[in-house]
Design a protein around this nucleic acid. Structure first.
Lengths: 168, 168
DNA sequence: CCGAATTTTCGAAATATTTCGAAAATTCGG
DNA sequence: CCGAATTTTCGAAATATTTCGAAAATTCGG
């Protein structure tokens, strides 16, 4: 495989993985492009390489900055904004984890809390089944959320120390 | 809050979480409905409660069975098929993890392997940056995949024993 | 503070995904 | 093996998401 093929291929692969993750294709592709670029690129360079419109490019570049996986950099004597991807994959993973927690876990937890003080008639099988299942889900989701939170803050618990060592 | 509101509310919440997870709304809602139902339901009952069409209901019910989070059950003396959700939340989580691994990690790993035997000219900054980043990503993704695999097989490693205990 | 360069916004078009519902296929009791 | 009950398929319609590209807004060197 040629280098330029490989690069195209990687951008494409990262892009389709993005869609599986609920990230739109352009956003993931821009991220891929910046990840493998040796230095920061301008919006125009991204547009050119990816054949995307100005609006779309701008939107997604800002979203990436918002997630924290891409940084704006300014070069002196140049009015243009340059964009540079965070190259430390562990940090990228943490930031992605953080976003996913926000989008996938938090809203659910918010809802689950509401059922806590629901008066349940234990003699009604419908109500009992509901209360049991939702109670289980709540307990479990809270645990998972706690795990995420710890992974994100990289708090030095004994457990996480071990896990992170395993990942390095 | 009334019970029937709570139920509606939960189905709705689980549904919108589903869309964040890349699962379509109907599929997640059917799952929610079956989760909180005291016994198995027929496709017609699902259609009725969720106001979904026959085709859509059938499609998603089968998808849920495919994932393993819902089981078909047959009642004697009744030709209809009944559907019942797996109520053990830990097991549900494992099955979902498994699907996500398949959709989110495996295709990427497949691609990453291809760059392994790419001849890289270290003097070309573009090529060097590409090789470095992709190499990192590959190493990391493999680690994460290994973690998933272990969680799924619930293999009794010391580490996982501890983690799972934490989740219970 | 002017004006060119650059970034952002926004409605419309394109695309992708989901859902509907009728028709076809299958199943199974009698 | 017939036929009603049930499930599945499938193309079309509805909906949701993404992308485009022109126009508006902003920025900043001179």
């Amino acid at each position: 495989m040629e280098f330029s093929d490989a690069k195209q291929n990687f951008i494409q692969a990262w892009g389709s993985m993005g869609t599986e993750w609920g990230i739109n294709r352009t956003m993931a592709q821009i991220h891929a492009l910046l990840l493998v670029a040796p230095q920061a690129l301008t919006a125009d360079q991204v547009m050119e390489e990816l054949k995307t419109s100005r609006g779309n490019t701008n939107l997604n570049l800002r979203e990436l900055v918002d997630w924290g996986v891409v940084k704006k950099v300014n070069k002196l004597g140049d009015r243009k904004e340059y964009f540079e991807a965070l190259k430390d994959i562990h940090k990228v993973a943490i930031l992605i984890l953080k976003e996913r927690r926000k989008r996938e876990l938090e809203p659910l937890l918010q809802h689950l809390k509401d059922y806590k003080d629901l008066k349940v008639n234990k003699n009604n099988p419908d109500e009992k089944a509901f209360a049991d299942t939702v109670g289980d889900i709540e307990k479990f989701t809270n645990k998972v959320d706690g795990l995420f939170a710890k992974a994100i803050s990289a708090e030095e618990s004994w457990l996480w120390g071990t896990l992170i060592k395993f990942l390095k």
